[in-house]
Design a protein around this nucleic acid. Structure first.
Ligand SMILES: [Mn+2]
Ligand SMILES: [Mn+2]
Ligand SMILES: [Zn+2]
Ligand SMILES: [Zn+2]
Lengths: 144, 144
DNA sequence: CTCATTATTGCAAAGATTTGCGGAAACCAA
DNA sequence: TTGGTTTCCGCAAATCTTTGCAATAATGAG
């Protein structure tokens, strides 16, 4: 068991109905170690529940994201997801040239986070924070 | 004239062909004071050049973004653009509840920018940086 | 000005994600 | 268990953006 049983309880408590579709999507994402594309989640879900629609997968992933159960990472121009792990919180840097993803410790966003909150009353969604740019490899390759 | 003549020269120097389509897209974005949606750009372009395709508008906007002439802002789930103004550089905070956009002085990103560059060799695309979150109004409305 | 080269465009289609709607199923109270 | 209420789902279509390809047009050389 991947430790997402508590998430199920939390969702149920919030009044959400735990359907096979939702449980399956959650299982798939929780079972993967890295970032999973929406289409890959769908393909895996269909193995056990062939009738499930892609729209349901998207709706479920958005729901899980809203509830903080999964984290969204925008890679290239596709949405990816991973189980939110409180013990290993991190943000993402994504290279727009090669789509490589590097993780970023939350400490790097602490100050920005606090300043936006205090000076503007704005609550940034740091959990799903992804910053785009060019990785070091691609910068090197570029300057030739 | 909205001061984007120099941009045209720069693009030409880079080897880009200045077609009526490109000039028109640039004129439209430069003529607006705020953030313009891709579809709005297209509608304006079509007034003078009815044959122009939406794909061309998207391709041109991406080109102008790559060259730093325009800045991209993701609002809701649509792409918006504005003329990059070196005299008034700023980033964006977008509320995921009401789509309100607040601007952010570049100073807020300086430290993060430098740390990512120095510690990871990662060059973040700060020019097109947009951070999502919940604005103060929506936070207040939420807690009721 | 004319021509050849090559970037750019329009068109059509693909891709990715979201949304409206009516029927299906989860949940809870009885 | 059963039935009623309300959420959720499959389906189909819409929406937004990107892409492949053949035809067109911008540019620079002669
Ligand atoms: Mn991650
Ligand atoms: Mn702006
Ligand atoms: Zn890279
Ligand atoms: Zn708001």
């Amino acid at each position: 068991m991947s430790g997402h049983g508590s998430a199920v309880d939390r969702l149920r408590t919030q009044g959400y109905r735990m359907t096979p579709q939702r449980l399956s999507v959650l299982d798939i994402v929780a079972g993967k170690s890295g970032h999973v594309g929406a289409d890959e989640v769908w393909n895996q879900v269909k193995i056990q529940h062939p009738y499930v629609d892609l729209a349901t997968v998207y709706r479920t992933l958005q729901l899980l994201k809203r509830e903080g159960v999964v984290t969204e990472v925008v890679i290239g121009n596709k949405l990816h997801f991973e189980l939110t792990d409180q013990q290993n919180r991190h943000h993402h840097m994504v290279c727009s040239h090669c789509d490589a993803v590097q993780t970023l410790s939350p400490a790097y966003l602490d100050e920005l986070n606090r300043r936006l909150q205090r000076e503007f009353g704005f609550a940034p969604d740091v959990e799903n924070f992804t910053i785009g740019g060019v990785c070091s490899k691609c910068q090197t390759a570029e300057s030739e």
